[in-house]
Design a binder for these strands. Structure first.
Lengths: 228, 228
DNA sequence: ACCTGAACACCGTTCAAGT
DNA sequence: ACCTGAACACCGTTCAAGT
């Protein structure tokens, strides 16, 4: 019987293990170390690329030993997970802020503002964003992404409920559909590097967003009763 | 100087290398081997899971040795790439077929049909689809995805141009936006395993699709002139 | 309280030897 | 013309030893 313990450990990482650092830094010195490791991870991602993202390389770039890295992150996935988490939280924050600013506005303004907020949030640090998102599917990000999606979706639900000139028979479903279209469309563009496709999005997305919201608010209430 | 040749080879795989098998099977026996390897890959993906997807394990499952696997695929990525390619081609085929069937119909019917085609195509073999898409970002799928997107987009462009009751000032941009929203929304749902979200999509997506197409066809022609 | 880095099991890939 | 599987370099992770 061979010793698979290390391997199985790596495979069985439940999201719980991924979400928290192995050890919370208690001294200024060590929390600085964590910051340095985060920065080094992104640098390696942008420089040598995702294929060259090894724990040893990140540690070297950060100026620490591998052992130190593993003091704060139980495994490589946890490190990447933490990087992704930071990024997504910033995104959800941006949607929250936009929601508060747009509350009570008419649909037209809400559509415009929402699209701008989405595009702006996901276009900041474009290269880093691309690299980080590309990493997302290598991890078990189910839990994290679901949580972020929930935050964004409820912010949008609240915003839609507050609209000055519309009522929705099933705000939840409309918010879900809108978030899926917005984030999906944004993501599709982020992943491909096509020049100009961002411009198309900037013009077309508000049209799509507004047209859908108008149609959804005009609709009689039993239409979506069957949906969750 | 250490020997990095193996490592660098693996890193530097250009899409060209990923797209074709190292050796084209010439005998019935060997093309059957390739089929078996494909099947084994999906089985491992669905059974032990993506974390356990090693070339050795795939080979064992397929009943061949690793060496044999490497006779047909230059590396692990190429294998996964081929699996993804098959899947995406089937998807593009489905959109093509739908486009031909719907040509000349009114917008309302086109919207409905397009959504059904998208959902149906991406819901067939749902588990395998999920597993395969989750793999996509680990590979360098830029070229492949762009090509498939192009096929789908031009099928949609043609379809929209054929609409019985509408003209678009910038069909290309509208098709691009529509494809981004459709595939993005579909993907978002596929990735999360939320119960009922597929039902929401089935009801809301045609509404969104139709509302946007109506709005876009009513729009004066200079609106999207600046976009590519 | 934090850091180091050699050591270990595993993985991707090759290639000499087989049918 | 195709297959085999031991061998090799590299990677993730650990842990005894240091400050």
């Amino acid at each position: 019987m061979k010793d698979y313990s290390g391997f199985l450990f790596a495979l069985s990482q439940a999201p719980t293990d991924l979400q928290k650092a192995r050890k919370t830094p208690r001294q200024a010195r060590s929390s600085a170390t964590v910051e340095t490791i985060f920065a080094a991870t992104i640098q390696v991602l942008l420089g040598p690329g995702p294929g060259a993202l090894t724990t040893t390389r990140v540690a070297k770039r950060a100026g620490v030993s591998v052992g130190t890295l593993y003091q704060y992150f139980p495994n490589k996935q946890a490190l990447l997970y933490a990087v992704l988490q930071r990024h997504l939280s910033a995104f959800a924050d941006a949607v929250d802020v936009a929601g508060r600013e747009l509350a009570g506005a008419p649909l037209e303004k809400i559509s415009q503002g929402l699209v701008v907020a989405f595009l702006e949030a996901r276009t900041r640090d474009l290269d880093a964003s691309r690299a980080i998102y590309r990493l997302a599917d290598e991890l078990d990000t189910e839990v994290l992404l679901t949580a972020i999606l929930q935050r964004v979706r409820s912010a949008v639900t609240q915003l839609l409920s507050s609209a000055a000139d519309a009522r929705f028979s099933d705000v939840e479903a409309v918010a879900q559909m809108l978030c899926a279209a917005l984030s999906g469309a944004t993501r599709t563009v982020l992943e491909r590097a096509e020049a100009g496709s961002l411009d198309v999005l900037r013009i077309e997305l508000p049209v799509l967003c507004h047209a859908y919201l108008e149609a959804a608010s005009r609709r009689p209430s039993q239409a979506t009763a069957a949906a969750v």
